[in-house]
Design a protein around this nucleic acid. Structure first.
Lengths: 168, 168
DNA sequence: ATAAACTTTCAAAAATTTTTGAAAGTTTGA
DNA sequence: TCAAACTTTCAAAAATTTTTGAAAGTTTAT
């Protein structure tokens, strides 16, 4: 396979994966483009390579910065802004996990906690089932939360070595 | 908080979480409704409780069965189909992980493998960066894959105990 | 102060996803 | 065989998400 074709396929695959996981496809594609680019790129170049509008490029780049996946770079003597992506895969995974935890898991855990305080008649099957389900999901959510927290602090090798030691 | 209000909030929260993770909101809501219901429910009841159309209810229920999250139940002497949800949280998490792995991770791993065969000039920075990124992501994907496989086979307590032994 | 170079905004348009509901299909019992 | 009871289908409509692009905003150099 040629490099150009490979790049195209990589960008497509990354975009599809993103959209399946609730991340805007363009955002994933811009990230993919920067991931395989040796040099930082300008908004202009990104617009051209992916055939997207200026507004779209700008918002997407802003979002990616918000996710901590790319950074702005300034070249001496130039006014243009350049963007480049963190290329350490473990760092990317950690960053994404951290953001999603903060944005999505944390709010749900908050609601689940509130829901454990719902009062009712212990003999009412409706109440009992509700209570049991909420309590169990709450436990799972807290475990996931705890595990993520530890993962996020962990160093790459340490993490994987530990995982493999158990799961072998 | 009253039970009725709690139910409502739970269904909403579950729906929102679902939509943030690329799962249709209605599907997550139907799942939530069945999760906290002590009895199996008919399509009719689900339609009414969530104010959704017959067609939507039918398709959603079919999808949930496809995900292995709910099951059809037949009551003796009745023609109606009843639906009930698996209530073991660990089983739900495992089921979802398994489905997503099969539907989304596996295809990406296949493409990444193909992309490692892209040929080019080792001195070309474009080629080198592409190669390195693809290789690293491929490694991470395979590790995730392996870990998931083992998780999916693991029993609940065994899994969590192990995780906590490391992450403490 | 001005203008060129560049970035950001956002209302409207396009694309995509989800929902509806009536019609078609199926199963069962009499 | 018929018709009632129930389920499935799917084209069209509605809702939602994403994208566009021109105008407004900002920064910098002279």
């Amino acid at each position: 396979m040629e490099l150009a074709e490979g790049k195209q396929k990589f960008i497509e695959a990354w975009g599809k994966l993103g959209s399946e996981w609730g991340i805007n496809r363009t955002m994933a594609q811009v990230h993919a483009l920067l991931l395989i680019s040796p040099e930082a790129m300008t908004t202009e170049e990104i617009m051209e390579q992916l055939s997207i509008s200026r507004g779209n490029a700008n918002m997407t780049l802003r979002d990616l910065i918000g996710w901590g996946l790319i950074e702005k770079q300034h070249k001496a003597g130039e006014r243009k802004e350049y963007f480049y992506a963190e290329k350490d895969t473990w760092a990317i995974a950690r960053q994404v996990a951290q953001e999603r935890k903060k944005r999505e898991l944390d709010p749900v855990i908050k609601i689940l906690n509130e829901l454990t305080s719902v009062k009712g008649d212990e003999k009412d099957p409706e109440y009992k089932t509700f209570k049991t389900s909420v309590t169990n999901i709450n436990k799972l959510a807290k475990n996931v939360n705890k595990t993520l927290d530890t993962m996020l602090k962990a160093e790459e090798n340490w993490f994987w070595n530990s995982i493999f030691k158990i799961f072998k």
